[in-house]
């Protein structure tokens, strides 16, 4: 196929003269065929998605992960910090005794045994087979019991109307939401936006995403090498997010 053909097709299209359904630029090729996209899934228990966050590489002044999440998922607020949602936040720590400081992002920890899922009356709060914890907003009634139950303050209630939601991330007033581990990216073989931004925008490489069940994955190798911490490990919830350096 030649460049000329493409350019002709492009011109025709821009001029709006092409027949819309099934423009034939070459025999046997239908251009408009969204329904033919490959089916993927279901999410499988063979995978267990998780994060490793190295607070030594994280800087108190950097919020690239938060910005990236906002942009990706569209949870920009209305300048009402108490009721605006925050799926991911930077927490700065200072040791009471020694004065040592650390900084790290906190988001949904995607627990193996999530209390938010236990307490949800309708089953809207749910964990996928691959360990990603989500809110099924189709059946969320907005009772906020999950927010009471989460030890990480990971969830937000949508306190006001939302417009121009992303197509992959429907959000609506009166329901609860939280970090999805960028499930839409993960299902397409990608990495979460925060992790990407930490490497590409911030250049810090403080976040690693991967399959905790795959011993060959980068994250598993790192976890096997160094002792890491999980937040509120005493609760036995087995979060999918690990921290090092705290």
């Amino acid at each position: 196929m030649s460049d000329t053909t493409f350019n002709a097709a492009r011109r025709r299209l821009l001029a709006g003269t092409a027949a819309l359904a099934g423009i034939s630029v070459a025999p046997g090729i239908r251009l408009i065929s969204t329904a033919e996209a490959a089916v993927s899934g279901p999410a499988s228990a063979k995978n267990r998605w998780g994060l490793l966050i190295d607070s030594n590489k994280c800087d108190a002044g950097c919020t690239e992960c938060v910005t990236a999440c906002k942009t990706e998922q569209g949870w920009t607020g209305n300048d009402r910090p108490e009721s605006d949602p925050q799926w991911i936040r930077k927490v700065n720590l200072k040791d009471n005794k020694t004065g040592a400081t650390a900084s790290l992002p906190v988001m949904c920890q995607h627990c193996e045994h999530p209390p938010c899922v236990d307490v949800c009356p309708t089953g809207a709060s749910m964990k996928r087979e691959d360990g990603i914890v989500l809110v099924d907003k189709h059946i969320c009634i907005g009772c906020r019991y999950c927010m009471m139950a989460c030890p990480y303050k990971a969830r937000s209630f949508v306190h006001e109307d939302v417009h121009n939601q992303k197509q992959h991330m429907p959000r609506g007033k009166g329901t609860v939401e939280s970090c999805t581990l960028c499930v839409h990216r993960v299902d397409a073989g990608g990495t979460p936006a925060c992790v990407e931004a930490c490497t590409e925008k911030a250049g810090r490489d403080a976040m690693v995403f991967g399959d905790l069940n795959d011993p060959a994955s980068e994250i598993s190798k790192k976890l096997a090498k160094h002792v890491t911490t999980r937040l509120r490990a005493d609760l036995g919830l087995e979060p999918g997010v690990h921290y090092s350096g705290i």
Binding site: T34, A35, A37, A38, V39, S40, G41, P42, A43, M126, R128, E129, D130, I132, L134, D136, H138, Q167, V183, D187, A188
Partner: peptide, 22 residues
């Protein structure tokens, strides 16, 4: 399909709302 997509992670099937939008 919404349940299959959200809860089971099956993507790319033909009955999605995004396909309607399309």
């Amino acid at each position: 399909q919404r349940d299959e997509t959200l809860r089971d992670g099956i993507r790319g099937q033909k009955y999605g709302l995004n396909e309607c939008i399309d």
